[in-house]
Amino acid sequence: METHLEDKVMSLSEAVKKFIPDGAQVSLGGFTAQRHPMAFVHEMIRQKKKDLHLVGHSPGGDWDMLIGAGCVKRVELAYEADEAFGRIGPRFRLAVQRGEIEWEDYSNFGMVQRIAAGAMGIPFIPTYTMLGSDMLKKEGFSAETRKLRKVPSKKLVLMDCPFTGSKVALLPSVQPDVTVIHAQVVDAQGTVRIYGQNFGDDQQAKAADKVIVTCEEVVQLEELRDYPEHNCIPFFRVNAIVKVPYGAHPYACYRYYDYDPEFLHMYHDKARDDASFKVLLDEYVYGVKSWGEYLEKIGGDEKLKKLKADKLLGYAPKLKRR
């Protein structure tokens, strides 16, 4: 398979151009306050991607910015917030209330099971979760949308288990066009190592047709092959590698840097209002040419020093968080 030998290491702008067509079904890694591929999100916004269909479990500002920037047509999710930094994604809330996007609700376990089923190559997965919930009764997508490519023909099916007779919900699997994750370390061939919780990154990547990994470090092949049991995605699943140090800012990246409370509080303050959100996008996304320039804008070395993770703890224990 010759694709294994091609050079996968590329720039953010190349990776977005090559792998994210308008209308693509995209899944982004991370979980609320950690390891979202933010540099990649900014580049998608700069390239004015349209009509994206996002699938995930608990995204945060990654989806919220894409939605606010007008890049998103529909979402399938369980939760959209930054938890203690912001109890809901403000642009997501407004887009739903204004009817600007289509949405479908599942629970977190529901969504990760759908993704895991996609990764396993099976069409559906049975579960007890969501039984008794209105997530079984209310559907967000229209009959029209249900006919589209990569959209399941039904939200779910309730049935009695053929073996035990107990009630189960059958959830349709998901196989996104592209999954983008932000990992700590990748080798030049594409083997991925993630430190700390994996969240859903492993299954999200394995369910997808194409995989893009942005990362803190790209290392030589031998470095990751010494301890293969610490690696989570084999190289042949990865199509593009982009080295972007601090690429998850303002979110944390375990053992590398912490989340940026100051920026997150500022985001939630500005993103509630259309005009101030536009100013924020102009300043931090459209107004910068590179992630390096962005890092200067958010406070440069002085800020990054504050966020730097303690070697033993994996986060910054002295960080001011309120």
Binding site: S58, Y79, A81, R93, D105, S107, N108, G110, M130, S133
Partner: peptide, 12 residues
């Protein structure tokens, strides 16, 4: 009228 963040793990 008002949208909240959604289930997350709550439903589970």
């Amino acid at each position: 009228k008002v949208r909240f963040p959604g289930s997350g793990g709550s439903g589970d």
